[in-house]
Design a protein around this nucleic acid. Structure first.
Lengths: 340, 340
DNA sequence: GTTAAGGTTCGAACCGGTTCGCAGGAGCAA
DNA sequence: TTGCTCCTGCGAACCGGTTCGAACCTTAAC
């Protein structure tokens, strides 16, 4: 392989001069700089990443720890990954992806061996095993998802409280007085998905404050089951006029269920979901929804991480916990309740 | 950070001895080996990846070049990535992910700077811009997807010809004599998706050889359109009794279309798709399908790549082009045609 | 008792970059 | 002419591993 020594030799200068000519970190005469660049181009010189990392203790690589939950919808995860990957490379970083089932060990390996300058954790749970490892690591970290303890890391998440309030307020404003909220299954919460609680509690409080009824239930995340559950729910609450879905499987199953009951939204039932626009497109769901904006969250996390890596924020600058406000994407599935 | 020098010092030996003690590449007395290991453990030593790469010219990282097509279904892509990532780490490799829209430049950067020991290309097109770059690189490469020219790389793909034959033969064996094949849209083919042709041509030949009718058409990959197109198709060919779908959007839209026409599979229409089991689960599709096995293909590609990296196959060993035979996953959507 | 063989360990060089200190030369003022 | 500064470029050291050759010490063989 062609090294900077070869370039220097071809240009008739010392290695150090070639390095300075290419990096611009010290003044070099115009003439020499041009000769060096020319030589580098002609020889097809590309600096060796390992050597550079060794010399500068910078890898220009960001670690991305994704955990694939078998019961989670793939499109959303891929959007997170894309948001992170694209933003990273716009900032001049590559991505080291770990989809490791046992995340903490992988994280430790990657940070200990200095393969990365920083780390993004996706899908962070309430008590996440990866967090202690990340805090002990010398590299900065950014999370997507809100853990119980946010010290030492920058955190980005959707504002689930606000999402819950918005969903209820939206339907209440249109005159609905009895609503059903289908959350994700309990095992998602047990796994650390506290966001399910956050949305549900905020929704319940809002409903209580406004004096309307909200039936909150957990639904399965598997397809045939959730369909049956939705039927049962609609049977059990015949006077409910609004349906809130914080459960992607339920949203995907609902069109069929409505069809089978010969109902349509918003004429018979107003519906609001909570999922990404991409998800809506993939399943061609006609329901208005709170946009979960995975790409945006991924981008924000990387941006902040890069700022920390490059020292644009002081190492002791306070850590950020930022909630992005929910956008309600109107697909026309809400209206005043039927006159009855 | 703690270096091997620190470990050596703590154990009272030379750096080289510490290195040999840890790597086992030369004999070291039991006593010293134990002392060194002990010291490494106590100090929390982890070798610096950059330094090791520099010394050994091995990074133990595999580059993964995924191209996200906006009109492609995310779940499948994620499965490829998972298959690659999991197999890689079982073999002791990490993954450098590039989702670069402009793949060739990213590939060149990664290989030139020696960030990776080898490369896996996903979603390879008939004439793929990344291939010349890969051939010029010093690292070996493995592809998922069949390009026009396979020289210099190992190639893995589903056997689309066999898939086409199987689909037609399966229905013919059950007595069907007029079939419809919905392929992916033409722009997928123009982009280099020759596999669409491969399946379609094989299906047409098989139908011709068996003296039955096959209407082959291209369908959109967007949701509202493909639904209308399916309706139009069924209108246009009222005597067709079998439907073959090499188009994921069509498969996802079909349940609704059937419902709207008050048809059901297999009683009124026999249906076979071509998509992954994961895809079927995500959309809870009740149709039998040719399994596209993305995880399996990803795994095969990494396995072979690792063999080449580690020199288990001679550098001049012939390159592999392997087609995996299609599995037909029976979900009970095929039967003899209705008596009529 | 000398020599050969074998097992251990050490020191030095190397991988390919970056960076620091210094030296040589030009330009300018005193 | 001397003295100073400024501009360029060079050499050497360093980052943290790995690996080669040689030296040392036992032990065995003749």
């Amino acid at each position: 392989m062609v090294t900077i020594g070869d370039v220097a030799h071809a240009a008739g200068v010392a290695r150090s001069t070639a390095s300075y000519a290419l990096s611009g970190r010290r003044a070099v005469s115009d003439e020499v700089r041009e000769r060096v660049r020319q030589a580098a181009r002609e020889l097809g010189y590309a600096p060796n990443a390992g050597a550079r990392a060794l010399a500068t203790s910078q890898t220009r690589v960001i670690g991305l720890l994704a955990q694939f939950m078998p019961d989670e919808f793939a499109p959303a995860m891929l959007q997170y990954i894309q948001g992170v990957a694209n933003t990273a490379r716009d900032s001049g970083y590559d991505i080291l992806l770990s989809s490791d089932p046992e995340g903490p060990a992988a994280l430790k390996r990657i940070t200990d061996s200095r393969m990365v300058d920083g780390v993004v954790l996706l899908n962070v749970a309430e008590h996440d095993d990866r967090l202690p490892v990340l805090r002990a690591a010398p590299q900065p970290g950014a999370l997507v998802g809100l853990p119980g303890d946010c010290t030492g890391v920058d955190v980005f998440d959707l504002d689930f409280e606000e999402s819950g309030r918005t969903m209820v307020a939206h339907l209440h404003a249109r005159g609905h007085r009895e609503l059903i909220l289908v959350s994700q299954p309990e095992h998602v919460i047990e796994r650390g998905g506290a966001y399910v609680w956050r949305l549900q509690n905020a929704a319940l409080e809002t409903a209580a404050a406004r004096g309307i009824t909200l039936h909150a239930v957990f639904g399965s995340s598997a397809q045939p089951e959730i369909g049956r559950e939705l039927h049962a729910l609609l049977d059990a609450h015949p006077h409910a006029t609004g349906l809130l879905l914080n459960n992607e499987a339920a949203a995907a199953a609902l069109p069929t269920v409505l069809h089978e009951r010969n109902l349509s939204a918003p004429d018979d039932l107003s519906v609001i979901g909570r999922y990404s626009d991409e998800f809506a497109r993939t399943f061609s769901l006609p329901f208005s929804s709170i946009e979960s904006a995975p790409d945006r969250l991924g981008r924000m996390a990387v941006r902040q991480l890069v700022r920390r890596i490059e020292g644009e924020v002081a190492a002791d600058a306070p850590y950020v916990v930022r909630f992005v406000s929910p956008d309600l994407v109107d697909r026309g599935s809400t209206a005043p309740p039927p006159a009855d």
